[in-house]
Design a protein around this nucleic acid. Structure first.
Length: 830
RNA sequence: GCGAAGGUGGCGGAAUUGGUAGACGCGCUAGCUUGAGGUGCUAGUGGCCGCUUUGGCUGUGGGGGUUCAAGUCCCCCCCUUCGCACCA
C-alpha cells in the first residue's frame, strides 16, 4: 500500500472506505452514554407519543419483519424530535406466553430464565439497529412490579362486576392435560401429538366485554385507523338490529323459548323452529318416539369441535317431535335440533323462514318442510328471496301490503303490545374467556373460602371443599400476588391448572379460617392491554401511572404494528381503556389516535417466511454484511410501509451505494457557493422529504434524497449547505452514518438534537417548466415555457416544436387546450 | 360464499385535483477505471419497427364506456393476497 491515494484530485480521490462495523456500535454507545433519547416534558413544547407493538421475545430472536415497523416509528420519533416535540418512544417485552412454558415442560428450565435470555437477545438486536428508544422506560410484563398493576386492573374489573365466573365449554385434551384453542384442534385431535380432544364444561373467569359492545362500535368513528381494520372491528362486534320473539311450546303449559331475528317482518313465514343441540329445552320437549334419534344427534354434536361443526356445508338435523306456536298466527310449527344453530349466538334458537333465508331454505328443502312466501318479489319455489329493502308483504295478515322496513316497525310494535316479543339489538361479540390453566401468566388475585374438617390441613392434601361461588379479591396492599416457584411445569390431569398442585401456595389460613387461591392465570393479552399506560410512568410504585404522566403523554399519537392484531389485541385494549375511563383512571375515550399496520415482508420466493420453507432472513446477518443503516433504509425503500412485499437481498446494494456516495460526497472539499440551481434542488428535496415523512411515505422520501445526492455528485466541490442538509435529512433513516458525517463536517452536538431544516416555498417553484405537447391527445413533443405563460404564448411556443407543427399543419384546429403547468393539447381534424 | 386491499418493464416500485406512464433502485449492456475479490465512474435500458438525426406504432390483468386527454372516473369479466367463514 502506497500513499498516493488521498492526495489525488477531488473527483478521482477516494474517501476512506466507510466501515459500518466500526462506526455503528460507536454511536450506539454514544447515545447510551449521553442518554440522548431519555425524555422528559419541557415547558411550552408539544408532545408526540410514538408506540410500537412490543414484541413477544421468542427464542428465535428478531426477524426482518420487526425492524420494518420499528424503523418507521423510529424515523417518526427522530423527525418529530428534530421538529421540537417532546417524543416518548419506548420499548418493552410482552413476555408471558406459551413457548417459554412449553420449553420449561420439556427441559425443566424455568420460564423466567428462558424469558430473561430471550429478552437479552432481543435487546441486543434492537440496540444494534440504532433505534432511539428511551431505554430507561423499558418494561417487562412478567416483572412483579408490572404484574402488580395488571392485577390491580383486574380487581377494578372484578369490583365492577365485569370479571365473573362461568361454566364454559372448552376443548379439553386429557392426554396433554390442557385446554386447547380452537385453532389447536384439527378434526377432533390435538394439533400437537394428535390426541383425542373432548368438549367439557370448565369453570372460567370471564370479562364482560359485551357490556361495552355499543361503545366499542360507536367510538371507532373518531379514529385515524385503516379502513379495513375499522371494518373488521365492526364486523367482530357484529351489531344487528331486530327483535326477540317468544314461541310457546304446544302441550307444555308455561314452557317457551326465545328467538332472535333480524327479520321479524317475516314471522308469518316461520314454518319451523330450530334449537341448538346444547339448548336446555331439547331434552325436555323431545317426544319418546324421537328421543333415541335426538340423543344420538346431540351427543355427536357435543363432542365435535366448534370449528369442525361450522366447517361442514351439508345441513343436518333431527325433529324433536314437539311443536311451537307461531305467535302471530297461532300455527303449530315443528321444532328441530340442528347444529347450524349456534348456542353461543343470540338465544341458541331460531325461527326458520325458508322463503326468505338461504340456510333455512336449504334445510327445509332437504327435510321437506313447508316454504311459504311472505315477501313478494322472488320465486320461493326456486330459492330464498332475501332482499330486505324492496318487496311487499303477502300472506301476512296485518302486514299485507307493507314494504319490509315498515313491516318491521309495525310487527315489533304489535309484538311489544301483545307481550310476545321486543325490539332488540344483538351483537356477535361474546364475553371474553380470561382464564388459562397455565403457569406462566399473571395469577388472578382472587381467593375462595374453604370448608375443611376440624384439625385437617388442605396443604397436606386433606379433603376440603372450595366455595368457588364466593370469590374474594386479594387486598390491594398484597399485590403483586406472585407465582410460586416450581420445578415441574408439566400439566397434570387436573383441569384447574398447574398451580392447583402447589398446595402450599394455594391454601392459606387467615383469622383461623382456610382459603384457597385461584389457580388459573391470565391470558397473554392481559399485559398488552395496558402497557402503553405503564410506559408513561414506568417506575411509579404508588400507582400504575400518575395523573401528571397521563396529562403529559396520553393519548398515543402513532401506533404501528401488524395487521394480525386488527381485532383481538386492539379490541381488548380499547375495552380495558374504556373501563379505566369509567373509573376515572384515564381521561380519553380511546387510547390509540392513529394506527398504521406495516405490511408483511415475504421471503425471496414470495412466500411467507418460515423455518420450514428455509426462507427466513436473519437481521444479524444483514447488519454484519451491510450495516444497520443499510437494513433500515432498505426496509423503508422496499415499497409503501403498509404493502406486503418480498425481501430481495440483492436490492440492498442500492441503499448501500447511496450511503457510500453520501460518504464520499462529504469527503470532497466543500464549496461555499450555492448555485441557484442547486439551491432549488435542495429546497425541493427538503419539501419532498418533509411531506413524505409526514405521510409516512418513506420509500419516496429516500428516492428524493438519492436524487439530491446524484445532483451533488456532479460537483467537484459540492456546496457545504446542501451537503449538511442532505445529511440532516437522512439522519432519521440512517442515524449512524449521519452522526459520523455530522461530526466530520465539524459539529460537536449530536445530529439527533438539531433542528429539522425548513424550506423556502418560493425556491421549490421553477420559473420555467417543461410541458408535454399533445396533438389529439398523443404526446408529440415537449416545450419549456414560463410557468405563468398565457395561452397565446404557450400555443406559439408549442407550434415551434417541429414534430408538433408537422401534425398540426394543414389541419383544422378544432380546439386548443392549455392547462397551465399541466398540458398543451391541439385537437385537430382533417 | 361474504368483506377488504391489490394486478404498472426481467425485478422492487414511482406517478397532486384525469394532464409528458415507468421517478428512484436492482438487474442487464457498452466504455473507462480499479485489480484477489460481492469496486468506482459515465452512458444506455418497456416492446416492436425505422435509423444519420428528428421519428412511427404499441403499452399500466382482459373487454367495453365517458373525455380534447384515462394507470387514475364508470360498467362487466379474470386473477392474486389478506380477513371472516352457517351470526338467524
Amino acid at each position: 500500500m502506497s500513499t498516493e491515494d488521498d492526495s489525488q484530485g477531488p473527483t478521482k480521490g477516494r474517501a476512506p472506505r466507510y466501515d459500518h462495523a466500526e462506526v455503528e456500535p460507536r454511536w450506539q454507545q454514544y447515545w447510551d452514554e449521553h442518554d440522548t433519547f431519555a425524555v422528559t416534558r419541557r415547558e411550552g413544547r408539544e408532545k408526540k407519543y410514538v408506540l410500537d407493538m412490543f414484541p413477544y421475545p421468542s427464542g428465535s430472536g428478531l426477524h426482518v419483519g420487526h425492524p420494518e415497523g420499528y424503523t418507521a416509528t423510529d424515523i417518526m420519533a427522530r423527525y418529530w424530535r428534530m421538529r421540537g416535540f417532546d417524543v416518548l418512544h419506548p420499548m418493552g417485552w410482552d413476555a408471558f406466553g406459551l413457548p417459554a412454558e412449553q420449553h420449561a415442560i420439556k427441559t425443566g428450565t424455568h420460564p423466567r430464565d428462558t424469558t430473561k435470555k430471550n429478552i437479552q437477545t432481543f435487546k441486543r438486536q434492537l440496540k444494534m439497529l440504532g433505534f432511539s428508544y428511551d431505554w430507561s422506560r423499558e418494561i417487562d410484563t412478567t416483572d412483579p412490579n408490572y404484574v402488580r398493576w395488571t392485577q390491580w386492573i383486574f380487581l377494578q374489573l372484578f369490583e365492577r362486576g365485569l370479571a365473573f365466573q362461568d361454566e364454559v365449554s372448552v376443548n379439553w385434551c386429557p392426554a396433554l392435560g390442557t385446554v386447547l384453542a380452537n385453532e389447536e384442534v384439527i378434526d377432533g385431535k390435538s394439533e400437537r401429538g394428535s390426541h383425542p380432544v373432548e368438549r367439557r364444561p370448565l369453570r372460567q373467569w370471564m370479562l364482560r366485554i359485551t357490556e361495552y359492545a355499543d361503545r366499542l362500535e360507536a367510538d371507532l368513528d373518531g379514529l385515524d385507523w385503516p379502513d379495513g381494520t375499522l371494518q373488521m372491528q365492526r364486523e367482530w362486534i357484529g351489531r344487528s338490529q331486530g327483535a326477540q320473539v317468544t314461541f310457546d311450546i304446544k302441550g307444555h303449559e308455561g314452557k317457551s323459548f326465545e328467538v332472535f331475528t333480524t327479520r321479524p317482518d317475516t314471522l308469518f313465514g316461520a314454518t319451523y323452529c330450530v334449537l341448538a343441540p346444547e339448548h336446555e329445552l331439547v331434552d325436555q320437549i323431545t317426544t319418546d318416539g324421537q328421543r333415541a334419534e335426538v340423543e344420538a344427534y346431540v351427543g355427536a354434536a357435543k363432542n365435535r369441535a366448534e370449528r369442525d361443526r361450522q366447517a361442514q356445508k351439508e345441513k343436518t338435523g333431527v325433529f324433536t317431535g314437539a311443536f311451537a306456536i307461531n305467535p302471530v298466527n297461532g300455527e303449530a310449527v315443528p321444532i328441530w335440533v340442528a347444529d347450524y344453530v349456534l348456542a353461543t349466538y343470540g338465544t341458541g334458537a331460531i325461527m326458520a323462514v325458508p322463503g326468505h333465508d338461504e340456510r333455512d331454505w336449504a334445510f327445509a328443502d332437504k327435510f321437506g318442510l313447508p316454504i311459504v312466501e311472505v315477501v313478494s318479489g322472488g320465486n320461493v319455489e326456486e330459492a330464498a328471496y332475501t332482499d330486505n329493502q324492496h318487496g311487499v308483504l303477502v300472506n301476512s295478515g296485518l302486514l299485507d301490503g307493507l314494504e319490509v322496513p315498515e313491516a318491521k316497525t309495525k310487527i315489533i310494535a304489535w309484538l311489544e303490545a301483545q307481550k310476545k316479543g321486543v325490539g332488540k339489538v344483538q351483537y356477535k361479540l361474546r364475553d371474553w374467556v380470561f382464564s388459562r390453566q397455565r403457569y406462566w401468566g399473571e395469577p388472578i388475585p382472587i381467593y375462595f373460602p374453604v370448608t375443611v374438617a376440624e384439625g385437617k390441613d388442605p396443604r397436606k392434601g386433606d379433603d376440603c371443599e372450595i366455595h368457588f361461588d364466593q370469590p374474594i379479591a386479594v387486598d390491594q396492599s398484597e399485590l403483586p400476588l406472585r407465582l410460586p416457584e416450581l420445578e415441574d411445569f408439566a400439566p397434570g390431569d387436573e383441569p384447574a391448572g398447574v398451580l392447583a398442585r402447589v398446595h402450599d401456595w394455594r391454601f392459606f389460613q387467615k383469622d383461623g379460617k382456610w382459603f384457597a387461591r385461584e389457580t388459573n392465570t391470565m391470558p397473554q393479552w392481559a399485559g398488552s392491554c395496558w402497557y402503553y399506560l405503564r410506559f408513561i410512568d414506568p417506575q411509579n410504585e404508588e400507582v400504575g401511572w400518575s395523573e401528571k404522566a397521563h396529562a403529559d403523554w396520553m393519548p398515543v399519537d402513532l401506533y404501528v404494528g401488524g395487521a394480525e392484531h386488527a381485532v383481538l389485541h386492539l379490541l381488548y385494549a380499547r375495552f380495558w381503556h374504556k373501563v379505566l375511563y369509567d373509573i376515572g383512571a384515564v381521561k380519553q375515550l380511546e387510547p390509540f389516535h392513529k394506527l398504521v399496520h406495516q405490511g408483511m415482508i415475504l421471503g425471496e420466493d414470495g412466500e411467507k417466511m418460515s423455518k420450514a420453507r428455509g426462507n427466513v432472513v436473519n437481521p444479524d446477518d444483514i447488519v454484519r454484511d451491510f450495516g444497520a443503516d443499510a437494513l433500515r433504509m432498505y426496509e423503508m425503500f422496499m415499497g409503501p410501509l403498509e404493502a406486503v412485499k418480498p425481501w430481495q437481498t440483492s436490492q440492498i446494494q442500492g441503499v448501500v451505494r447511496f450511503r457510500d456516495r453520501v460518504w464520499s460526497l462529504c469527503h470532497r472539499p466543500l464549496g461555499d457557493a450555492l448555485s441557484e440551481e442547486s439551491d432549488k434542488v435542495l429546497h425541493k428535496t427538503i419539501k419532498k422529504v418533509t411531506e413524505d415523512i409526514d405521510n409516512m411515505a418513506f420509500n419516496t422520501a429516500l428516492s428524493a434524497m438519492m436524487e439530491l445526492t446524484n445532483h451533488l455528485m456532479g460537483h467537484d466541490e459540492p456546496p457545504r449547505e446542501a451537503v449538511e442538509k442532505l445529511v440532516t435529512l437522512m439522519s432519521p433513516f440512517a442515524p449512524h452514518i449521519a452522526e459520523e458525517l455530522w461530526k466530520k463536517l465539524g459539529h460537536d452536538e449530536s445530529i439527533a438534537l438539531i433542528d429539522w431544516p425548513g424550506f423556502d416555498p418560493a425556491k421549490t417553484i421553477d420559473d420555467t417548466i417543461e410541458m408535454g405537447v399533445q396533438v389529439n391527445g398523443k404526446t408529440r413533443g415537449t416545450v419549456t415555457i414560463a410557468r405563468d405563460a398565457d395561452a397565446d404564448a404557450a400555443r406559439a411556443a408549442a407550434l415551434e416544436v417541429e414534430n408538433v407543427s408537422k401534425h398540426v399543419e394543414g389541419k383544422d384546429v378544432k380546439k386548443f387546450i392549455y392547462v397551465p403547468g399541466r398540458i398543451i393539447n391541439f385537437v385537430v381534424k382533417g
